[in-house]
Nucleic acid binder design. Structure first.
Lengths: 150, 150
DNA sequence: TTAATTGCAAACACTTTGCACGCTA
DNA sequence: TAGCGTGCAAAGTGTTTGCAATTAA
């Protein structure tokens, strides 16, 4: 969490106007510290009596994604997009198939592999996306272990 | 590509009725040998004068995914789902950011890592999804290298 | 014969857009 | 004050569903 002046500066540094909604959404995402949907942002801001329109949320998220202040994800078999504050740390995600919670993993096992793959394919590799799937300890206890992912 | 009797057997082995559309779509996907959208299937079948409804394509794909005969993917920043014949080989994907082509990678660097992560998090890891992003040799030549993925 | 599958049209969920008004720089 | 940001309503896109007719077992 930061003093709002800092969000204003972040916005200005990208050539964006600083507006109430933009700083609010940036702050919200940084505090959330995990990927959330546009609707979640919309509703949770409403609960704090911050009046904003859903389309403004989407527009703001698009603007912020374009400037890479925010990351946009899609998760397999989920139709809604997820948005996350971009704190410039390379991350992966551990998704619980039972309760759908998502944990971040900051350790990355793939740097070496990227180089190997570049040699093998002549692609220039610019990044990757890795999601791990499984069951969290709580769901294991509750026996919520129907599906698997492979 | 297989003789259609084989698709009939695959379907029956899963407890599914064998219908024209189901065998056609299974065959189509196996020949395609890469992830495609429902619309692509629909249109390419139409071009072969096979009459089918888009909703039937979706319903068939859902049925086949439920039985794991077909895999359903989503790619970051793409709104359409992709469907692929499940040949039971664990795969990853190399996505060209320039021309959007997708290559399969059958080598997987993550088996070790899954075990490590289980110990670290107490999750039971059931699988993972890894997409690599970059620029294919052709797009590198054409200078189509605006974006990056990280 | 009976239950599952299909076509069609309509509904749906998520996201985007056009336009008039409001606010930032 | 000029132009970008916003609210609102309406449209768009990809996907799902209800129902009657058809087909597989």
């Amino acid at each position: 969490m930061k003093n709002n002046t800092i969000y204003e500066n972040i916005l200005k540094d990208c050539g964006l106007k600083s507006t109430k909604h933009r700083t609010t959404i940036l702050e919200f995402l940084e505090i959330a510290n995990q990927p959330v949907t546009a609707e979640q942002i919309y509703h949770e801001l409403k609960e704090k009596n911050i009046s904003i329109n859903l389309s403004t949320v989407y527009r703001t998220l698009e603007t912020l994604s374009d400037k890479e202040l925010v990351l946009r994800h899609s998760v397999t078999n989920e139709s809604k997009a997820l948005f996350e504050y971009n704190n410039r740390v390379h991350k992966h995600y551990l998704v619980c198939i039972g309760c759908k919670k998502i944990l971040s993993i900051e350790n990355c096992p793939l740097c070496e592999y990227e180089k190997l793959l570049e040699r093998q394919t002549d692609f220039i590799i610019t990044g990757h996306k890795l999601d791990m799937y499984g069951y969290c300890p709580e769901c294991q206890q509750k026996g919520l272990m129907g599906e698997k992912y492979n």
